[in-house]
Amino acid sequence: MFAQLLHPDVIIGILATGVRLATPFLLAALGEMFAQRSGVYNLGVEGVMMMGAFSGFWVTLTTGSPWLGVLAALLIGAVMGLLMAFISVTLQAEQGISGIGLYMFGWGLAGFLFRLLVGYVTSVDGFHDIPLPGLSRIPVLGTVFFDHNWMVYFSYLLIPITWYILFKTTWGLKVRAVGVTPEAADTLGVSVARIRYTCVIIGSMLAGMAGAFLTLGHTNMYADNITAGRGFIAVALVYFGRWTPLGIAGGALLFSTVDALQLWIQVLGIDIPYEFPVMAPYVLTIIVLALVSGRIWQPAALGRPFDREG
């Protein structure tokens, strides 16, 4: 039975699925990385994703344009990020709990609005796959990497982009400084609040986009609880990736490829209780992190509100 898994078509299938499944994690986790780098952890990603998924879907359903849908998801994400930033930065709230509040609020509101504005299961015409000319013809790699819709490409482009922003620009330097020693950054004239607001909002916008990917780039529909815990996984992946874009990408790909693998193991009828394949990605993520762990570094001011007047 396991021999079937080694068939080239199956392997390509698994890898291509893994690449596609990693997209929402990449978007949401790379966004959350900015927020955490600046010192704010937002547990509410799941709620923002739900709102992004719904608003993207609804705008597409009413206007017919998935592009407007993504725009709406980004906007809603920004608004929710603003709310989160206001509560956790300006009002210096305990971030864990405000994140949970944001999660409940967004998750519930999305379901509520869906009932109010749509109220039945339907599908939309989302984004189509764009095989990249030339590249998609490459054997194996072509199907695995270059035969997806633009959101998938965009999420992978984000890896170098965020790396560049974070490590090669002055703004990135400020973000990192604010996340480690906000007091020092403040004395150097960096506005801690402004940096944190920006980062939380960027993170939230990307989370909204991750939600929109689920409705516009993946299933082309919306249903209750479509995010199904993916927002929380995305938060976990930030820790997995040690706040670096490459680490996060590695985690997202690991998680989703194992997920794709377990689906195929089941599809090929390999006989083990299905719960074990289903839990495999979760177990593996922990094990891998445990194996590669060494001296841990984390943004020293993560979770700590900054108050200028002490």
Binding site: T17, R20, L21, L214, H218, T219, M221, A223, D224, N225, I226, A228, R230, A260, L263, Q266, V267, Y274, E275, V278, M279
Partner: peptide, 14 residues
């Protein structure tokens, strides 16, 4: 095959 969830439509699609 099972998704392991009743409501995860994205997993079911996959």
């Amino acid at each position: 095959a099972y998704t392991g969830s009743f409501g995860d439509i994205a997993k079911a699609a996959e």
